[in-house]
Design a protein around this nucleic acid. Sequence first.
DNA 1: TATGAATGAGGCTTCATTCAT
DNA 2: AATGAATGAAGCCTCATTCAT
Lengths: 224, 224, 224, 224
Amino acid sequence: MNIENADPPSGRKSGWKQNPEAVRQDILHAAIAEFAEKGLSTARVDDIAAKTKTSKRMIYYYFDDKQTLYEHALEAAYAQVRQGENALQLDHLSPQDALAKLVAFTFDHHRNHPDFIRMVMIENVHHAETLAKSEAIQKLNIPVIEKLAAICTRGQADGIFRTDVDPTVLHWQISALSFFNVSNRPTFSALFGDQLFAEAGQAALREQVVHMVLASVYKSKDRP
Amino acid sequence: MNIENADPPSGRKSGWKQNPEAVRQDILHAAIAEFAEKGLSTARVDDIAAKTKTSKRMIYYYFDDKQTLYEHALEAAYAQVRQGENALQLDHLSPQDALAKLVAFTFDHHRNHPDFIRMVMIENVHHAETLAKSEAIQKLNIPVIEKLAAICTRGQADGIFRTDVDPTVLHWQISALSFFNVSNRPTFSALFGDQLFAEAGQAALREQVVHMVLASVYKSKDRP
Amino acid sequence: MNIENADPPSGRKSGWKQNPEAVRQDILHAAIAEFAEKGLSTARVDDIAAKTKTSKRMIYYYFDDKQTLYEHALEAAYAQVRQGENALQLDHLSPQDALAKLVAFTFDHHRNHPDFIRMVMIENVHHAETLAKSEAIQKLNIPVIEKLAAICTRGQADGIFRTDVDPTVLHWQISALSFFNVSNRPTFSALFGDQLFAEAGQAALREQVVHMVLASVYKSKDRP
Amino acid sequence: MNIENADPPSGRKSGWKQNPEAVRQDILHAAIAEFAEKGLSTARVDDIAAKTKTSKRMIYYYFDDKQTLYEHALEAAYAQVRQGENALQLDHLSPQDALAKLVAFTFDHHRNHPDFIRMVMIENVHHAETLAKSEAIQKLNIPVIEKLAAICTRGQADGIFRTDVDPTVLHWQISALSFFNVSNRPTFSALFGDQLFAEAGQAALREQVVHMVLASVYKSKDRP
DNA sequence: TATGAATGAGGCTTCATTCAT
DNA sequence: AATGAATGAAGCCTCATTCAT
């Protein structure tokens, strides 16, 4: 993205043009914002174009149609978020600390990427049709499970985790709590107030979530 | 819905016609199905009409426009689901059993009402704008919290539940796990397979969820 | 079509409205003119609408899209022309006179319906895709062959026509000469002058064409 | 077109490039194919470029716009076909044999150059606007009439042909039958079957056509 | 209460063409 | 001589909504 800020090659005013990759990223950025905000069908190609340094016509030049643009935006959103996760260093921690850190990180990470959450919500509304077609996205999600599997193996080796712990179930649990926290904030706070989503409430929830997940992997006797 | 089968008021030829309430319900049904399936803006008034025994014009006669129809559909979806919840008898159970039953029931109830879940998803995509305006829906949701509050009070009186347990947080936890299970099934199974959503997987998850919630309210020494 | 001229039901200015069939015909008329003039892809829906008493929107109401409108226009063009042919009374004439009359009639009829000819030209440019799908049009064309078959049978019974005369070949011959006369007038006259298409030229060609066709069915000894 | 295979002028890397005439021909070829297949307005400059060894930009470099490219394509199509006709040697034959040969040749020649026929069809749909402007094409067509005029003169001198035979009318007849055979095959076979266009059918038609044309120039008493 | 016909605004997309290197 | 990127005008079509009976 800092490509966009690169100096124009020859000092020309229109320097950022003729830089296909920058234009693509510019469009993708605008598309993610618009799709996340409005949803697939409510999003307007004109509005996406308006958020762009380029024109509507170029959207069709780089991406073929609205649907294709949506596909690429979804991929980009996933890539951006998973990339953050991959930076996590967990190997040097004890299994329980590694898991705690991963849960807390996920909770925060989801909170910090509401656009991504919203795109996944929208994708679910559409029965994940687009995601199901994207092998790229599917590959992006393998590392999460691998991380959890490694933690489980180590925790079981240490005799602390239950032997029937399943990495996928674990991911389901972590995701459910972290995702819902962002996705359903609008309805939940409309019905039950906004306190849970203020700083204090979120801190408490975060702790609770870590606690719940850990409690579900520990053997009974070792539970904190 | 058996309203529809009620005898025509007089000897009119048109039978179910001339029965405004039946027509309203017919439309509302079709609207819920269409909105839940397609989302707010993707849903077509024409398609809703097609699912109806009556015509598009009548939709505008009974409901003023698409947005209003959506509001009523959302209310109807909530009413239908909360009604099921209210039938639960929990008072004769111990606090822990009552909570376990409520969690398990919610998990199942959500599973059994995917249309409702989808309408809430859609509402969240739209920042709960419609729901925020509906006092009717907000009233419908008071009993859930009251139920949980009663359970908490009893559990705390019994000295088994932690003193800082919060009914709203509890509801958040139960909802998160039960809601996500339905809402994110499309993306989750596209990425990580469908096993968790088959019968065996769901049974296991249900048990896990009950377990996690109970574990989070118990005092440490009493945890199962 | 005289429906269009029918008195408005109640003297209202907009009386011709709410008369679906009249609107359909109005659109169809405009469509034939536009398609015949410009071709399928050069024709503009806006221009068709402009030739209409109604609006572009109604074109999509009655016909679903441009292609469908084209299909109906093609059918209407065929129907209109074949209808003229069916009015021909040939049974009371001798076979040779009947044939001569049919040829002359076709030559004139084609000349008098250049829009029809142009639509068939366009259809041929498009490999008859649309026509091949229309069973309606195919049925419309059966009578022509039947007429010719009847003439042939009578002529052969009389011992005047060759025994190997084929009605379909005969139709091919008549069509070729009559069709080309209209279809290729632009290029032919651009290259070789316009005289053949002036009145005198056309009269001569018409005679020639009748002559050629008759000559090809007669037994040698009887040729005129 | 073997121009394309000419050795690159020097030791340039790009081989066939840098050979303007070859590039022109390449483009012209693609253009004829595309225009003949799709028609003038349905043909896409992009698609023409795709059929080319070069790029869309070069089309605009060599030809100025789509319309100009079409003009050149039309000229090229005519040139290519008329060139074949000019190779015919008719002088050493009797007038009647020469005419028979010319008719049969035209029938076959048209069949073998459907792209040319289609371009003429398209030109007629467009009222021969382009052709009318091209003096080049008009010159190309003079020899056909001259050939026929020569045959007529000889046939009349021999006392076999009618004195009122007109070379232009003759050309009209020959063209009509040979042209229609190709141009209207799609609609004709869609309506009346494909037999006439199979080998046997075409052979019979060809004979018929020769016969018809000859019959129309002979004096009555000499008719075959 | 009911209905088929009508509508206007606005959305997505295509296409020939030109720019900048 | 050659090319990828950029453009604006215009085309087809959809949709919620209202009219006239």
